[in-house]
Amino acid sequence: TIDEIIKALEQAVKDNKPIQVGNYTVTSADEAEKLAKKLKKEY
């Protein structure tokens, strides 16, 4: 679900690790936030 994706992003940001979500690779908190907002609009 979208919530699980967002939790995974938040965890990756805390661990400061890049995370791959679908076609996106998120490497920073800023990118994670942008991706989360984008995904919320889509779903």
Rank of each mutant, 00 (worst) to 15 (best):
E10K: 04
E33R: 10
D30V: 09
D3Y: 13
A36R: 08
Y24I: 11
D15S: 10
D15W: 12
K40T: 07
T1K: 07
I5V: 09
E33A: 14
D3E: 13
S28F: 03
K38H: 11
L39M: 05
K37M: 14
K41G: 12
P18F: 06
V21T: 02
K17F: 15
L9Y: 01
K37R: 10
K41Y: 12
N16H: 08
T25F: 15
K37W: 03
E42A: 07
L39N: 06
A12K: 02
Q20V: 13
E4Q: 12
T25I: 14
K14W: 13
N23S: 13
E31T: 02
K37C: 14
K14G: 06
Q20D: 05
L39T: 00
Y24N: 04
A36T: 04
T1E: 12
Q11H: 04
I5H: 01
L9K: 00
L9D: 02
K38S: 08
D15A: 10
E33C: 08
Q20K: 15
N23P: 15
G22C: 11
E31L: 02
T1V: 06
K34A: 15
P18K: 04
K34T: 11
Y24K: 04
P18G: 12
A29P: 06
K37S: 12
K34H: 09
A12T: 04
G22T: 02
L9W: 03
D30S: 11
A8N: 04
E4Y: 10
I6D: 00
Y43V: 10
P18V: 09
A29M: 07
G22W: 09
V26R: 00
A32Q: 01
V13K: 04
L39D: 02
I2W: 12
K17I: 11
K7T: 06
E31H: 03
K40M: 12
T1Y: 11
Y43Q: 11
K38E: 15
I6N: 00
K38R: 09
A12E: 02
K14Y: 09
L35Y: 02
K37L: 14
T25N: 11
K41C: 15
Y43F: 13
K7A: 14
A12C: 10
A32L: 07
K34S: 11
Y24A: 05
E4F: 08
A8S: 08
K41R: 07
V21I: 15
D30E: 15
V26H: 00
K34N: 11
E42M: 11
K34D: 11
E42D: 11
V26F: 04
K17Y: 15
K41I: 12
I2A: 03
D30Q: 12
A36H: 05
A36L: 15
E10C: 12
I5M: 08
K40R: 13
N16E: 06
T1Q: 08
Y43C: 13
K37F: 07
E31I: 04
E42R: 05
K34L: 12
I19N: 01
D15C: 14
T27F: 14
E10V: 07
S28E: 03
D30H: 10
I19L: 11
A36Y: 15
L39A: 01
K38G: 03
D3L: 14
D3N: 07
Q20E: 10
K40C: 15
Y24S: 04
I5Q: 02
N16P: 04
T25M: 14
E10T: 06
V26L: 06
L35M: 05
E33F: 09
S28M: 01
L35G: 01
E33H: 08
I5K: 01
A32I: 06
N23Q: 14
I5E: 01
A8H: 03
D3W: 15
A29E: 03
I6R: 03
A12F: 15
K14T: 08
